[in-house]
Structure formats: structure tokens, C-alpha cells
Design a protein around this nucleic acid. Sequence first.
DNA 1: AGATACACTGTAATAGTATAACATTGCAAG
DNA 2: CTTGCAATGTTATACTATTACAGTGTATCT
Lengths: 172, 172
Amino acid sequence: MAHLHETACPGCESPDLAFARHDHAHCASDALTRAEALAAARGVRLTPVRRRVLEILLEEHRALGAYDVLNRLAAEGFGNQPPVAYRALDFLEEQGFAHRVRRLNAFAACMHPGEAHSPAFLICRACDKLSEAPAAPIRAALEAAGAEIGFTVEGSSVEALGLCPDCRGAGK
Amino acid sequence: MAHLHETACPGCESPDLAFARHDHAHCASDALTRAEALAAARGVRLTPVRRRVLEILLEEHRALGAYDVLNRLAAEGFGNQPPVAYRALDFLEEQGFAHRVRRLNAFAACMHPGEAHSPAFLICRACDKLSEAPAAPIRAALEAAGAEIGFTVEGSSVEALGLCPDCRGAGK
DNA sequence: AGATACACTGTAATAGTATAACATTGCAAG
DNA sequence: CTTGCAATGTTATACTATTACAGTGTATCT
Ligand SMILES: [Zn+2]
Ligand SMILES: [Zn+2]
Ligand SMILES: [Zn+2]
Ligand SMILES: [Zn+2]
């Protein structure tokens, strides 16, 4: 799954490094590169607005509201009406380049686009950072729970609120 | 945990019967009775608005938006401004008598109030009914995922979208 | 009972999130 | 070229949620 580097790639290892010190410039540009490759392979267009929105989301391990994104777009000369942001965000979500975080009414860049995953988010209530956790076991448990009553799980949103290691250390 | 009946109590067995044929009048009145007892035991007041909102939520295994609830309240002579509904819903959620379903921006009655549980919801995309699934294994998996990177899970929302047995049978 | 305190409800105003509908632009296939 | 389609821009509107303040009832303490 991971791409190849000459040197170790802190952005590409599991588990997610959102809460750890890491080379985030690499982490972000790596995700962007992978999204570009995937878009090309799928024959969909990562247009300027869409690409810029993804870059904005990638700047931090944090979820941004549609209107936060929109304000930044507007300041950079793109349209300044809600659909501009929502359309780009919807596109990114469809392509698996970003996820919607329902608990926050916000959106976050996907940190490992291309790998099939139904994301599980760990959201720090103190610093607002968030991490995409390995969700396979969770998804399995959810499907098992569904199966017991004949329910077929097609999609899921799993979001935990809590304290990240840093904020826990700081005694929040 | 379950209360006692002379006869079998379809509303009080696990797993949740939302998608199965069951005596829902019983199922609902049972949940209401338990909420009343819990409120009394805790010294909190299940006032007329609050109680009515819970009854409304209990009418079906379905989530209702705050404004759906509000419209019904207004039609029955209660206040007709948003806070009337939101305050009652917040109260019910705090007391564990109802849950917020983030995926739907809506609220659903808890079908087994009093039992400690972080709920997992199974939401049918065809008929909109929803079921509270046993969430302990899911919660455990989520906490394990968090622990791996030092994240402490305090609360979680787990919501699956899919097809219930009936709608699956009907070929939706 | 009267005074006090506080929880609950009512209401108005506003903030925040999201979509529908239609006009315009820009590229791609025929 | 022109026809079609995808993407963007723009207006208006719908839906969700909170803040702030006023009034009312209920419990408690003299
Ligand atoms: Zn990073
Ligand atoms: Zn944190
Ligand atoms: Zn029932
Ligand atoms: Zn169904």
C-alpha cells in the first residue's frame, strides 16, 4: 500500500501519526500526490478549486467547516458562495480524498487515500486535532452486530471524542 | 436488567426489535415507564413538555428532527420556538432517555434507558427505521484503536447506514 | 404566609449549516 | 464548428441550532 522512499516515511506508516510529532509537510504532500495519481487513474479531474480545497484540508490534522474552507477560497479569488465549497468537498468525499466528520459538521483530508477504509475518527476535545484510526476491527464488530438482526451494513460513521496523548499529558 | 412480566416481553429482550414485528405499544410504554422511574430516582423532573417529547420519539423506531418534534409540540399548545424542542431533547439526552443521531441531525428515543451504553445505531436507508445495537464490542475495538496511539476515548458515536431485513427482502 | 432562590418555559432574534435552481464558462467529442 | 457535458458562479432559500432575555411556577426558608 505505501509508496516507496529512499528513507523512512513517517507520514506513511500505521498507525496514524496525527498526534505524534512528524514531518507534516511530507505527510500532507504525500497525501496530495496520491490523490492526484488516483484522480488521473480514475479519469476524474482534480480541478484548481478541488485541489486547493484538498490542500487547505491537508494543512493540519484538523477538520474544517465548509464555511471556513469557503472563506479561504474567497480570499484567494474563487467563488464566495456556499456551493463552491460544498461541491468541492462533496467531490473529495466521493473520491475518498476527504471525509465528513459529522460530530463537528466539518471535513477532514483523508490521510491515506486509495486504501479502502471506512474511517474511524479519534477527535481530541481539547486541541481539535483528529486521527483516522484503523477501523477494520470496528467495522467487523459493527457488521456482526447488524448480522444478528439481519441488518446489512453498507456504510458507517464511527467517531470518538476524547483526549489525545499531548493534551492528556498537559492535564486537560 | 429487564423488568418483570407475567408473560414474555418482546420489547425487553436483546437484541433490539426495531426491525422485527413486535408489540410496539408495549415496547414504547415500557421505555416510558423506565424513564419515569429513573427520573424520580435521580430527582430530576420529567415535566409535561419533556414527557411529551419522549412520547413523540417513542411512537416509532425512527429518528425525528428537532423541528419535527417542535411542530408537533406547537400543534398541541406548547411553545413554538426552537429552544422549546431543543431544551427538552437536550434534557432527554443528558438523562440517557434519548440519543442524538448525528448522521440524520435527528433524535431517537432510547429503547433501554438506564442501562449504561454508548449506543451504536443501525439505520435503514430505505425505511428510515433505526435500531440500537449492542455496542460493547464496538466500543472495545474503538478503545483499543485509541490506546494504540495513546488516545483516551471518552465518548463515541457509531452509526451504520444500510438495509434492514424487511427492506432487504423487498429488494430495495 | 411572605420572601427568596432557582428551575423551567416562552419568545424574539440571530448564527451556523446545507441545498435547490438557474446562468455562465470552458473543454471534449463528433 | 457545434453540440453536449462537466464544472463553476451566483442568487435565493431551507434547514439546524444557539444566545439572550422575560415571565412563570415551584420549592425552601424564615
Ligand atoms: Zn501529518
Ligand atoms: Zn489534543
Ligand atoms: Zn419497539
Ligand atoms: Zn428498512
